[in-house]
């Protein structure tokens, strides 16, 4: 039976130096920080050996106070109910991380979205270009906390 304990012990055994601040919230919830260079191999290990065959979500979070960006992966499975939350810290000035599209195919759009909204560059992504925004807005990184285009006060009916 695969549960959060089993997954964490398997991961820490395979990658002894790459996991920190790991936290098991319940049998099915596991949170951990991963070193940024290891994330590709961690995902591959999870897909091959731990039946984690479903990338549920991938997103970015901005922490201007710590001058850091985080990429958060939620990896689930069609076989067991465990949801693993992996977080990677990136420097805010030069955020760059390995793409996991070759492991989880559906990461493609998530990474494109995170790229245009946060400015996180994905290395070895097959087609890194904006997905949701117009081309002129590339470089504004609208979901970062210091974005100045929000709130947009162009509506003339504002009271």
């Amino acid at each position: 039976m695969i549960d959060a304990d089993y997954i964490l012990s398997s991961l820490t055994k395979t990658f002894p130096n790459d996991f920190s601040e790991s936290k098991i919230e319940s049998d099915t919830k596991l949170t951990s920080y991963v070193e940024k260079d290891a994330i590709f191999n961690v995902c591959k290990h999870m897909l091959d050996n731990l039946e984690c065959n479903h990338l549920s979500c991938e997103c970015g979070v901005d922490y201007p106070d710590r001058n850091e960006l985080e990429v958060v992966y939620h990896i689930a499975s069609y076989e067991h109910p465990v949801v693993i939350t992996l977080k990677v810290k990136l420097p805010r000035d030069d955020p760059e991380i390995e793409s996991i599209v070759s492991v989880y195919w559906n990461a493609n759009w998530y990474e494109r979205e995170t790229y245009e909204l946060y400015g996180i560059m994905y290395k070895n992504h097959p087609d890194l270009k904006p997905l949701l925004l117009i081309d002129e807005m590339l470089g504004d990184w609208p979901l970062r906390k210091d974005y100045d285009g929000y709130p947009n006060k162009t509506s003339k009916n504002l009271v």
Partner: peptide
């Protein structure tokens, strides 16, 4: 995609 992208995530933060 993106023809009706409304930025809901940003709005929810505010």
């Amino acid at each position: 995609m993106g023809y009706i992208h409304k930025g809901i995530e940003k709005i929810l933060e505010n």
